[in-house]
Design a protein around this nucleic acid. Structure first.
Length: 759
DNA sequence: TTAGGGTTAG
C-alpha cells in the first residue's frame, strides 16, 4: 500500500527547473551595453537552452563563446573589466581554462572578481594546485580577497588535503574580520568536516549568526559521514526549510549507513510532503531500489525518466543500468547501455562506470565467462580500467577460482599503477586465498598500508579457508590490538577458522565475546559455525542441544552441519533424527537424501539406502553431480564422476588403475563404506575409482612437469576415500596437490593434508 | 551542501 501510494505520488511530481544564465548576469550585460552580439546571444538562446533537470545542458560551448570574444576584441571591450569578467565567466563555465587564463592576462584593470572567477574555475574543474598558486599571486599583487575568493580557496585546500593551508585561511578570516558571510562559513564547515575535525565544524555552525539551508545540509551530511544517524535525523527534523538537497542528503546518507529501508521510507515521505524530485533524487532512488532488488519500483522510475526526457543524463543512465544488473535483468541493462548519453561532461569516466556495472552484474549472476569476455572487449576498446572495474574482476577470479586470470588482473593493476586501496586490496587478498595461494594473499596483506575491517576479514577468512585456525585467531587478535572493530563477517571468519581446526574452546570464547563485548547479534552463519564446530569435534548431542537452546531449529543450515558430522562420526541414530527434521524443512533439496543414504550405507543398511533414494526420485529431487576442474595452459579441463568424454579418457583410466595399485602397496585401501548403492565390492571400487577429483588429479599428473604444484577445484565436499587417495598420491609421486572444495582448501604434501583429516 | 560502478560470510 505504502509503495503503491508512493508510486502514484512520484508519477505526479514535477521536477526542479534550472536556467542559465541568471537574470542578474543578463542585467549586468544589458546595462553594460557592451556588445550587441553578447546581448543577442543571451536573449535568443536562453529558451533553447532551458532544461528542467541539469545545468550541464545549459552550459555554453566554447565554440559559441569564441565568436563573442572575437567580437568583443574587435569592439575593444574585451580587456575591460566588466566585459572581460563576463567572458571569463563564460570560458570557465564551458571548462575552457586555457582560453580563460589567456583572457585573464589580457584584462588590463583586473579587480577582485576577475581573480575570483578564475580561482573558482580552477577549484571547480579540479585544477586545485593552480587555484592556490593564483591565490598566492593575488596576495602578492596586493589584491584583497573577498568571501567568494576564500570560499573557493578553501575548496582547493580540501581537494589537496591541505588542512594547514585551510587553517591559515581560517586564521586570516578571523584576524581581518572579513565579517560573517554564510557562504564562507559554510565552506569552512565543509573544510573541517572533510578532515574529520568535526568539533571545529560544529563550533562554527553553532556560532553562525545566520544559517542557510546549505549550512544545515552540510552538518546533516557530516553526521551521516561519521555514522551518527540519530543525530542527523534529529537535525533534519529541526531544519526549518528543507530543500531538495536536504532530502537528498539524508536519504543517500541513510543508504550509505546501511539503513536502506529507512531511506526508502524517507523517499516516500519526500514524494508525499517534500519538494519536487530532481535528477539527483532519481539517481538516489534507483540506487536504493537496486540495493533492495525492488525491480518493479525501479521500472516505475525508468518510465518516469523516459517521460521527462532524462535518459540522456549520464548519471541517470548508469543508475538505471546498475539497477537492472542488480535485479538480475542483464538484457534490459544491456539494451539501455547501447544508447550513448548526451551532453555529458566526462564521457570517459561515465563509460567506465557503465562497463563496470555490467561486468559486476555478470559476476553477481555467476556468469564469469561473460564478465571476462566483456573485460577483454574493454581492453580492446581502450575503456579506462579503474579500481572499481578491477575490483569486480578480481572478485570474479576469486569466485571462479581461476588463478591464471587472477594473476593477469593483478599484473594489470600494477602496470596501470593503481594503489591497492581497501577495496582492491581486499579483493586481491580474497582472490589469492580463494585460488589457493594463501602465501601470496599474506604477502599482499603485509604490503597494504591502509587496512579496514573488511581487509582484515579477508585475510582472516582466507586462513580459515585453508584450515589455518590458529593463524586466523592470531590475525584476529592483531586486528583488535590495532583498534579495528570486527564486524559480523570477521566473526564468521574466526569462528569458521576455529571450526576447521577443531578449536572448540576458542570458538566458544569468540561466540560469547561477539555478543558481550561487541554487541553483535548472532546470525545464521554464526550459529552454523558453532554447530559445525561442536558436532565435528564429536559433541553431537551438545550441538543438538545448542540448536534447541538457541531457538534455531527452523534454520536448515544448522541441521545440515549436524547431519554431515553425524556421518563423519557414524552416528546413525542422530543422522536419522536430523535428516527427518531437515526433510521437513527442505523436502526438495538433494543434500539431506544423499547424506541420509550415505549414513545407512556406512552401516550396510541397504534397504534404507534404497528407501531414501526412491523417496528422492519420487519427489523429483535431482542430485548435483560431482564435478572437478583444473586449468592447464589457459584451458579448463572438467571431469564428472565416471566421465569418459575427455579425449584422453583411455590413457587417464589406465594411468589411474596403475596408480591405485601402487598406492595400495603402501597402505591405501579403498573405503567401500562410502558407496551408497548395494553393489558388489568390485563394483563399489569401480564407482569410487571414478570420482571426479581422482580423474582430475590423474590428468594433472600426466600433463604437468614432475615436482610442479597441482590445483584442483571441486563443486562438492571431498569424500574420505578421495582424501586418502590424494594423500597417498602426494607421497608416492612427490607432488604438492591443492584441492578446493566449496568450503575449504586441502593442501596435500608428503602424504599429509593441511586439514589434519578434520573437515 | 546532495547523485552512478568495487571488497570480506556454512
Amino acid at each position: 500500500m505504502l509503495i503503491a501510494r508512493f508510486i502514484l505520488r512520484l508519477l505526479a511530481t514535477e521536477t526542479t527547473k534550472v536556467t542559465f544564465p541568471s537574470t542578474r548576469t543578463r542585467n549586468v550585460l544589458e546595462t553594460a551595453q557592451c556588445d550587441n552580439h553578447l546581448i543577442h546571444y543571451f536573449s535568443t538562446t536562453e529558451h533553447q537552452r532551458r532544461s528542467p533537470f541539469n545545468s550541464i545542458y545549459n552550459l555554453p560551448n566554447n565554440k559559441e563563446v569564441e565568436p563573442l570574444h572575437a567580437q568583443a576584441i574587435k569592439n575593444g571591450s574585451a580587456q575591460h573589466q566588466q566585459v572581460g569578467n563576463h567572458l571569463l565567466n563564460l570560458y570557465v563555465k564551458c571548462s575552457d581554462l586555457g582560453q580563460a587564463q589567456k583572457l585573464f592576462d589580457d584584462i588590463t584593470n583586473r579587480d577582485v572578481r576577475s581573480w575570483t572567477i578564475l580561482i573558482t574555475g580552477f577549484a571547480k574543474l579540479g585544477s586545485t594546485k593552480l587555484g592556490l598558486d593564483l591565490f598566492a599571486q593575488m596576495q602578492y599583487d596586493g589584491v584583497c580577497p573577498n568571501c567568494f575568493t576564500l570560499s573557493s580557496v578553501l575548496k582547493c585546500c580540501s581537494c589537496l588535503n591541505d588542512l594547514r593551508k585551510g587553517k591559515e585561511i581560517h586564521g586570516w578570516v578571523l584576524r581581518k574580520g572579513v565579517g560573517s558571510d554564510v557562504v564562507l562559513e559554510n565552506s569552512m564547515i565543509d573544510h573541517y568536516v572533510k578532515f574529520g575535525n568535526f568539533d571545529y565544524a560544529r563550533i562554527i555552525f553553532e556560532s553562525m549568526s545566520k544559517r542557510d539551508t546549505v549550512s544545515w545540509n552540510i552538518m546533516i551530511g557530516a553526521y551521516l559521514h561519521i555514522g551518527v544517524v540519530d543525530k542527523s535525523i534529529d537535525l533534519f527534523r529541526r531544519l526549518p526549510i528543507k530543500d531538495v538537497a536536504s532530502w537528498n542528503t539524508i536519504i543517500v546518507g541513510l543508504m550509505r549507513n546501511g539503513s536502506n529501508v529507512k531511506a526508502l521510507e524517507l523517499l516516500y515521505q519526500m514524494g508525499k510532503v517534500g519538494p519536487q524530485f530532481n535528477n539527483i533524487t532519481f539517481s538516489i532512488a534507483l540506487a536504493i531500489f537496486a540495493s533492495l532488488s525492488l525491480l518493479e519500483l525501479g521500472r516505475q522510475i525508468h518510465g518516469k525518466v523516459l517521460r521527462v526526457g532524462l535518459l540522456c543524463d549520464g548519471f541517470i543512465m548508469n543508475s538505471l543500468v546498475d539497477m537492472y544488473c542488480k535485479c538480475g535483468k542483464m538484457d534490459r541493462a544491456l539494451a539501455i547501455s547501447k544508447k550513448p548519453p548526451q551532453g555529458y561532461d566526462d564521457m570517459q569516466s561515465s563509460n567506465s562506470v557503465l562497463w563496470s556495472s555490467i561486468v559486476s552484474g555478470y559476476v553477481q549472476n555467476c556468469r564469469f565467462e561473460k564478465a571476462f569476455k566483456l573485460f577483454r572487449e574493454m581492453v580492446c576498446e581502450g575503456v579506462e580500467m579503474d579500481e572499481f572495474t578491477l575490483t569486480t574482476l578480481a572478485s570474479a577470479c576469486a569466485n571462479a577460482g581461476i588463478l591464471e586470470q587472477g594473476l593477469q588482473i593483478h599484473a594489470l593493476i600494477e602496470k596501470l599503477g593503481h594503489k591497492l586501496d581497501v577495496f582492491l586490496g581486499s579483493a586481491i587478498i580474497d582472490m589469492y586465498a580463494k585460488c589457493g595461494s594463501l602465501d601470496e594473499a599474506r604477502s599482499i596483506f603485509i604490503q597494504t598500508d591502509s587496512r579496514n575491517t573488511v581487509l582484515w576479514t579477508s585475510i582472516i577468512s582466507g586462513c580459515a579457508l585453508h584450515g589455518q585456525g590458529r593463524e586466523s585467531i592470531h590475525l584476529f587478535e592483531l586486528m583488535l590490538k590495532e583498534g579495528i572493530r570486527p564486524n559480523e563477517v570477521s566473526f564468521v571468519g574466526v569462528l569458521s577458522g576455529c571450526s576447521h581446526a577443531g578449536l572448540v574452546e576458542e570458538g566458544h570464547a569468540y561466540f560469547r565475546s561477539m555478543q558481550e563485548d561487541f554487541g553483535i547479534v548472532p546470525g545464521v552463519e554464526h550459529f552454523t559455525c558453532m554447530v559445525d564446530l561442536l558436532s565435528r569435534a564429536g559433541h553431537l548431542n551438545g550441538a543438538e542441544d545448542f540448536i534447541y537452546r538457541n531457538g534455531i531449529s527452523h534454520i536448515s543450515s544448522v541441521w545440515k552441519a549436524l547431519l554431515s558430522a553425524s556421518r563423519l562420526h557414524k552416528n546413525i541414530e542422530m543422522g536419522k533424527r536430523v535428516s527427518d527434521r531437515l526433510l521437513e524443512l527442505e523436502p526438495l533439496s538433494a543434500g539431506p537424501y544423499v547424506l541420509l543414504s550415505n549414513i545407512y550405507a556406512t552401516s550396510h543398511r541397504w534397504e534404507e539406502v534404497a528407501e531414501a533414494r526412491s523417496m528422492m526420485e519420487q519427489r523429483g529431487v535431482k542430485k548435483n553431480p560431482g564435478q572437478s576442474w583444473i586449468q592447464l595452459k589457459n584451458q579448463l579441463h572438467t571431469f564428472f564422476r565416471g566421465d569418459r568424454s575427455h579425449p584422453q579418457a583411455t590413457e587417464i583410466y589406465s594411468y589411474l588403475e596403475r596408480l591405485i595399485t601402487r598406492l595400495k602397496e603402501i597402505g591405501y585401501s579403498i573405503d567401500t563404506d562410502l558407496v551408497t548403492h548395494d553393489v558388489e565390492e568390485e563394483q563399489k571400487e569401480l564407482i569410487l575409482g571414478f570420482h571426479s577429483e581422482k580423474l582430475a588429479v590423474t590428468y594433472a599428473l600426466m600433463s604437468t612437469p614432475c615436482g610442479s604444484l597441482i590445483r584442483v577445484m571441486k563443486n562438492l565436499r571431498v569424500c574420505t576415500d578421495c582424501h586418502a587417495f590424494v594423500k597417498y598420491t602426494s607421497k608416492v609421486m612427490g607432488r604438492e596437490i591443492i584441492v578446493r572444495d566449496p568450503y575449504r582448501f586441502h593442501h596435500f604434501k608428503h602424504g599429509k593434508c593441511s586439514c589434519g583429516d578434520y573437515w
